[in-house]
């Protein structure tokens, strides 16, 4: 297993390097540069100013030269300076990353806490009224556009009932304790949970139905085991394998995909940071953010592979069997 892990980490590093070249190249190929954006906002910037600023920001250099300069600095631990946020890239990322992790881990946990039992419940009663009800709710969750759901939640709980804040963070309202922070997280978490729970429920249900058709399940039932023992003791581990894959892939998607929720709830997280950095031509920030998203996806896949071995005794990775 350790050899497998080392090999996978090495592969991941190669992927990250290739991705850094591709991302930097793609960002560089996009039209315009940061100085063009400055000019459009400041009528006082003259042609001489523009040339001087391009020199200062290193934009007079060819793209490959800028990339090599960034790579050299990054290898020494300096990820560069964010022009958009006027601070080192890492300083801009850390608060957004922590906000996103709180939001996404909470919503993912909550979504799984609802989706897994609901999917199992529906799978054990296929085509029953409760199965149809769960499926209907799952499809509704998948189908509702996140921005619309967010606005509806705000209108109901913030504007009409006045129970919860309409967005932002607790600090913006001068609140600081954990208890005071909770209300600001409720609506974005609910919004993301509703968006995620449907898909996971459907995966869990499909996987469990498939597993329950296996011969060894029939054998377990023939031995006279109870339904709960059959489902939880025998079927669940195998049924979880495809679900784990989906959850692992979700990590990367969630990391960069909460943009709409973050925008609607004025929640300063990674989705917004990535969007702003790309639209604002902030090469360093965009590159590091996208590499983080890539790294998280790779880590998710690695986690899934390890989890397969833990879930399925037939899967082993060379030196050690799970």
């Amino acid at each position: 297993m350790s050899e497998f892990l080392i090999r996978r980490v090495f592969h991941s590093l190669i992927v990250l390097f290739v991705m850094s070249v591709i991302i930097y190249g793609l960002i560089g190929l996009m039209p315009g540069d940061p100085i063009d954006l400055m000019i459009s906002a400041d009528p006082h910037i003259t042609s001489e100013d523009a040339a001087r600023l391009r020199l200062i920001y290193g934009l007079d250099q060819p793209l490959w030269s800028r990339y090599l300069h960034w790579l050299g600095s990054a290898l020494t631990g300096d990820l560069g300076y964010s022009r958009l946020y006027a601070q080192p890239v890492w300083d801009a990322i850390v608060p957004a990353l922590s906000n996103t992790l709180v939001l996404l881990l909470s919503s993912l946990t909550l979504a799984l806490m609802i989706a897994l039992p609901a999917g199992i419940f529906a799978a054990t009663r296929p085509y029953s009224l409760s199965d149809y009800g769960i499926n209907l709710a799952a499809f509704a969750g998948i189908s509702i556009p996140p921005f619309w759901l967010g606005i509806l939640l705000i209108l109901l709980f913030a504007v009409t009932l006045g129970w919860l804040p309409a967005g932002g963070t607790a600090e913006a309202a001068g609140a600081g304790t954990l208890w005071e922070r909770v209300p600001y997280l409720v609506l974005p978490i609910v919004s993301l949970t509703i968006a995620g729970v449907g898909g996971h429920t459907r995966f869990m249900r499909a996987s469990m139905i498939e597993t329950l058709r296996q011969d060894y399940i029939r054998t377990a039932r023939a031995k006279g085991l109870s339904q709960s023992r059959v489902v939880l003791g025998h079927a669940l581990r195998n049924a979880m394998i495809p679900v784990v894959t989906v959850i692992a892939l979700d990590l990367g998607v969630l990391f960069s995909g909460a943009l709409i929720t973050e925008t609607v709830f004025a929640y300063p997280g990674m989705g917004k940071l990535i969007f702003d950095s790309i639209m604002g031509n902030d090469y360093n920030l965009a590159l590091v953010c996208l590499l983080l998203a890539t790294a998280l996806t790779l880590f998710g896949n690695l986690f899934a592979d390890v989890a397969y071995a833990a879930l399925d005794p037939r899967i082993s990775y060379g030196d050690i069997e799970a």
Binding site: G168, A173, T263
Partner: peptide, 20 residues
Amino acid sequence: ITVRVIENTATLEANLLSGG
């Protein structure tokens, strides 16, 4: 004085109506 940044104008309106 607190200056809050809310880019989405629908959310901005909702914050005004809810007293945020």
